[in-house]
Design a binder for these strands. Sequence first.
DNA 1: TCTGGGGTCCTAGGACCC
DNA 2: TCTGGGGTCCTAGGACCC
Length: 439
Amino acid sequence: MSIQQAGSSRRNKWVALVDGTNFFVSCERAFSPRLHGRPVGVMSNNDGCIIARSDELKALGVPMGAPVHKIQHLIRRHRIALLSSNFTLYADMNRRLNDILSCFSDRVEPYSVDESFVELSGFFTDGLLEQGRQIEQAIAQQAHLPVGVGIAQTRTLAKLANSQAKLKRQGPKVSVLDADADSTCQLLEATPVEEVWGVGKRLAERLRRLGIDNAWQLREAPEAMLRKRFSVTLARIQMELKGQPCHDGSGKETAKKQLRVSRSFGRASDNQQEVLDALRHHVQRAAEKLREQKSLVKTFSIFLRTNPFRSDRPQHSDTLLYQFDQPTADTTEMLEAARKLLRRLWREGYHYHKAGVLLMELVDASPAQLSVLETSETQNQRLKRERLMQVMDRVNLSQGRGSVTLGVGMKEAGWKARQEKRSPAYTTSWQELPKVVAR
DNA sequence: TCTGGGGTCCTAGGACCC
DNA sequence: TCTGGGGTCCTAGGACCC
């Protein structure tokens, strides 16, 4: 196993991590002035727990992931505004953010729904700070979103620089971290090891037992020991802390290797038909994603699970796999597979709480993948269905997701998540455009 | 009553083969 | 009495991320 090094750490090659501050909350605020200056939270699917918090909500001591039902007393006392998540809006705002970033660099790599890496070349350190400010300003002006910008030689350091930037009380939230600067030693010493990107709770515990408590100690630890006692992953993190890039941008835009669609139900169900309805929905969505990235699936699977928090009820959780004879992107074939699998997986007397679909072993949908043994008749059928899928995808893209489905409509189904406080799809639905009223 | 969803990468260990 | 060793492939599960 070798450590892959992507390029050398030449002084003029830098990477910026641009990250939306309290992103989901900021997206909501961009369209709703009443949300400014008060505690705001965005809830998970099903309005179950808190997945984004404004600074005011953080100040009240509400932790990330807090179950909503456990903070009811705070909600009333402090006039907390809670919103259901509106991922259509957040994804669209993310697209805008990346459009703006692409004016600053032709190498922008979206990393998650609220952050992107941007390669910056040919700058000296002070020029970098100014560049970061311009990025921050452009996003504030054009997308009305606050961001933090962290710049360094590697992504791991840019992550740390970004957290530094966000700590700034006033002025631009931009920070540059030079791996070779003297000040970096102090900063890394003051950084607990679990705050390093890629070091979670478990690894941190093990590192602490060896006397490695902070980022500087990790950077200076013997590399051979890290590789032997831990893994190549930790050795790469160490290289990155030294300023030698090990993650590069080559992974961008590659097709996903697995796709998953799953949801908890609005209420638990012991009705097989109802669960099948939920799975049908998930299958259709998964198949769309599959066709979007131009892949075919070989191994298909579904899973079911009861609510693990209900220790008073019997628990059942299981997954079943299905192998397609030929890789496919056809929704009808996947629906059929899901139906068969569910019949085998189903157990009477359990209240199921979540169901999902997993597409594994994805292959490229090039014509070479099709069987040479296919008869002209089956080929005709396949082409007809492919055209049907194309039409469905186009309609759903232009008219909104779920406009056309195979089988029963999904409108009032019992498994549907609760989303009682969702904001409108301001930017992606003609029906929900913000209204301006002249007085 | 009420506790998210969707990913990636790596490793250990079993199965199998010669 | 002694009961191989080394390779590959696959899968489950751990750990981490946002």
